[in-house]
Design a protein around this nucleic acid. Structure first.
Lengths: 363, 363
DNA sequence: TTGTATGCGTTATCAC
DNA sequence: GTGATAACGCATACAA
């Protein structure tokens, strides 16, 4: 009766895949659905002979469990969803690889999506995961609109961990790199080598990471009794081409700094290339420190120079994120809301030690 | 009765997210489930006043549709799944970005997963998608074991498109780059510049791409009346470090070739770096042609030299793959099984034109 | 315009 | 050891 349209539809539509169900197996093997389910889930209490018949039928019909039905009844999918703003960085890729690795160890499937910087798409993917496609999500990034999105997540207590973004008033656990420490390490390193006039090239300040690194830079400068005047804070949008723009700005400066701390290696390499073309030598004329240590993530060298840069412990970050979400899914609120990791400065050849006379510059 | 354990479980477990259902909304708004469903799906035939009440209730309860239930009843998820072997290449990332873009245009969600080169994990992800998590899949890559996996897919007529792998006897549509043409372009380019002694560094020959490019190389050489002896075919496993190894092999050759066609830029840049360290100058001592044109995909330069390389039309490839899967999902068998695209040689500065006298070397 | 009833494919409970 | 049967949350044909 009522099921005729469904059945008819199923039989008529030639386009749809012909995936067998437990019921199909049951018919073929001459047993009940329950028995089939038991066999398929490796439960005890099934006659060896029956089990064999069921298994053969399943094989013959190319059975694939319907995960929609399964997660509907179990309210669990075994999946963790990861939401990116963009795929376009070797750093993101390495993080993805590490996340996948740790998820597998924890017995979760991991699926990724990128909203390509589109907030609506991001919200859509998150709602998709929250709707049962995943048991929990990992949100990577610190874009401006994320807070509103995270509000929805906390409202229903959905398991979620955020990498790279710390929202104070929300109870969502964060996995963070200490960007302030990173900036301080960069400044300290340059200071020790005699640099006093240090500039900073920011990332996209709509992302918290960029703000943190800039603030960390300013703070570190002040702690050394140095100033970080606005004209030495070159803000960029973190997109392709901004390194070149930053280089132009640097070259146009009346009092050129002796060193620059750049938001990340992507920008820094592009900037160094533009500087090189303008006959500004690195490190002779300008010292550069980056962030992310791309050389460590790539099989090739991202430029003629090896950039001195801060390396992030991506494996630790990934493990912590998976851990947090897995704990939340299991119903255990994590003890600590913030898992903080320290970046480590890796020395390259883009920084010069200034001769003493310059080092004793005023201020 | 029977539902008590379910309800009790739901109420007791503090860990689970508290996501409201249509039934919850219905109760709160004082209407039936059907009405709520209608409102939520923007259907006509609902009183404005009722609609408002429902919407308010949904908002208040932070309603998120359960996609498991929805896709169970509709046998559609609105998702296309993409399966990668690895995330570790700028090429893969750019392809992902393009795929995401085109999927959004087609109204599909796109979720990615990487099996990290583990065949079992790959099979698991594919079965997961086939089980209803996605309406169709795009498999990227040409690893050796893929054929067995694709057998399962075709057995149940599940919508699937493969990028970079052509399995002759299966009816799965393929999106391909003409690797033979790519190799021929590389050889032609070098031949025109006087090179006769040309070597080839392969990729992982367990992947069909690598085999195709090698075969294309050999064929193109023969068409020029040149030979491609085994000792000039340096096979690698495509992993990190193999470029360095290939460089060592090249340097150890008794009769060193004047040019090398390398499987991809990743290997080529690593190789060139090792060669540089061994004081082998490029292009003076050796000309190099790569594949993938990484410079076009990165915001920074992947090395001091700009590698002459074959560029793949990734946007076209992505569009074709999405198109194919979307068509299959809609029940339309694509007219053509193979969508072939041509790579384009982008000239860099890693190839030298040999002086006439050398060019006329015998064979 | 609204509500009732049914089924999607699975797991889980409980009789046989 | 095995098999009915009842949910999971949703969409829809159909009755009211």
């Amino acid at each position: 009766m009522g099921n005729v349209p469904y059945l008819a539809l199923h039989l008529i539509s030639e386009g749809g895949p012909a995936i067998a169900s437990i019921l199909d197996i049951a018919k073929k093997a001459g047993v009940s659905k329950t028995t089939v389910s038991k066999v398929l889930n490796r439960q005890y209490g099934v006659h060896a002979e029956t089990r064999k018949r069921v298994l053969e039928a399943a094989e013959a019909l190319h059975y694939t469990p319907n995960i929609a039905a399964r997660s509907l009844v179990m309210s669990k999918s075994g999946v963790i969803g990861v939401v990116y703003d963009s795929f376009r960085s070797p750093l993101y890729m390495e993080l993805a690889t590490q996340l996948e690795h740790h998820a597998m160890v924890s017995g979760y499937r991991l699926v990724f999506c990128s909203c390509n910087e589109d907030p609506d798409a991001k919200s859509g993917y998150i709602r998709y995961f929250m709707g049962g496609a995943a048991d929990g999500i990992i949100l990577f990034g610190s874009a401006e609109g994320d807070e509103a999105i995270l509000d929805q997540v906390t409202a229903v207590d959905y398991p979620c961990a955020v990498i790279e973004n710390h929202v104070e008033h929300l109870s969502i656990p964060n996995v963070l790199i200490d960007n302030l420490s990173g900036a301080a390490q960069a400044v300290d390193y340059l200071y020790e080598r005699g640099h006093r006039a240090i500039a900073h090239v920011t990332g996209n300040l709509l992302h918290k990471v960029a703000v943190d690194r800039r603030d960390g830079f300013v703070k570190a400068m002040e702690e050394h009794g140095l100033s970080a005047p606005p004209e030495r804070l070159l803000s960029t949008e973190g997109t392709i081409g901004c390194g070149t723009k930053a280089a132009a700005q640097l070259l146009a400066m009346k009092e050129r700094p002796t060193a620059v701390f750049v938001f990340n290696d992507l920008i820094a390499y592009e900037m160094m290339d533009a500087l090189h073309q303008a006959r500004c030598r690195i490190p002779e004329d300008l010292s550069v420190v980056g962030f992310d240590h791309l050389v460590g993530l790539l099989s090739f060298k991202p430029g003629p120079l090896e950039l001195t840069s801060l390396s992030q412990p991506l494996s630790d970050v990934a493990a912590a994120a998976i851990d947090l979400v897995a704990a939340l899914v299991a119903g255990n609120a994590p003890q600590e809301k913030v898992r903080l990791f320290w970046p480590e400065l890796k020395e390259g050849n883009t920084c010069r030690t200034l001769p003493p006379e310059r080092a004793s510059d005023p201020e």
